[in-house]
Nucleic acid binder design. Sequence first.
DNA 1: TATTGTTATACTCTATAACTATA
DNA 2: TATAGTTATAGAGTATAACAATA
Lengths: 154, 154
Amino acid sequence: MGSEAGKGGTVAKAADVGPLAANVRYLLRRAQLAVFDELIQALAPLGLRPAQYGVLILLKHAPGLKQTDVAGALGIQRANFVVLFDELERRGLARRDPMPNDRRSYALYLTAAGDEVRERAAKREAALEASLDAKLGPGGRQQLLDLLGRLVAS
Amino acid sequence: MGSEAGKGGTVAKAADVGPLAANVRYLLRRAQLAVFDELIQALAPLGLRPAQYGVLILLKHAPGLKQTDVAGALGIQRANFVVLFDELERRGLARRDPMPNDRRSYALYLTAAGDEVRERAAKREAALEASLDAKLGPGGRQQLLDLLGRLVAS
DNA sequence: TATTGTTATACTCTATAACTATA
DNA sequence: TATAGTTATAGAGTATAACAATA
């Protein structure tokens, strides 16, 4: 990519991030972006973005949650979750059912179609996980999960 | 936070993310957001956002880089970098100098004021790093840097 | 022709305030 | 009064295309 442009003395240290290379925060961001971009590309053919995929996974594991719970668990604002879920519902991948005890809220469920899409997405994700593990080496995944868990716990 | 709303059987599993809790990508995002939010709060009193702080760090370490290089090193689009740097220049924290060999590009430098602000930001960041290390435990930082580095490398 | 800086634009994600209907 | 869902809106961050000056 044209590192030696021109003819002067400027050597153009293109990708040298210097002190940032040893910065946890910086590497965390770079790693997150890299890994997320892979997932975005993998899910794109299914018309799913990572956040929507997260909803499908969560509803598979814990059906009947209400919007506030799902949004909270995924770190999404209630207000933004509405639109996100509207699209899943419009596409017939999930549905809002009335709650018997509280007419303010909905119980959220995957549809059969939604579970199919989730399953296909999971297969695509699994392929990426394998490549992740290859990069991380033996035991690397568990180590990373531990360390990240400590950061999230706060 | 009102987990026992209503009187029915719904126990409201508020923060149970189930399978996502063991997902590298999900934890990576959550950790990155948590850690970045700390930095955003710490830098806010200085009127700096993380990306701007990154520019100051980079220019301190490698003065005289041109816009394309700095943007590329930080993973920012050339077009977006222009506006970002405009603000640093407007505030007198950095400057564009003409390049002798190439009249298309600028050599970017920190000003004295910019270096002062960078220094103050670095001190605030250092405080956060200490708290990070406490969470990560002995050797945790280096382990994490290694693992993240492998994810970014590819 | 290719590259640098630049403008304009658009799209996603995120955050907040305010409304409604229920509780 | 408090909560669930909703709407509208605004702000970041990011991505792309196109242009002028220069190489």
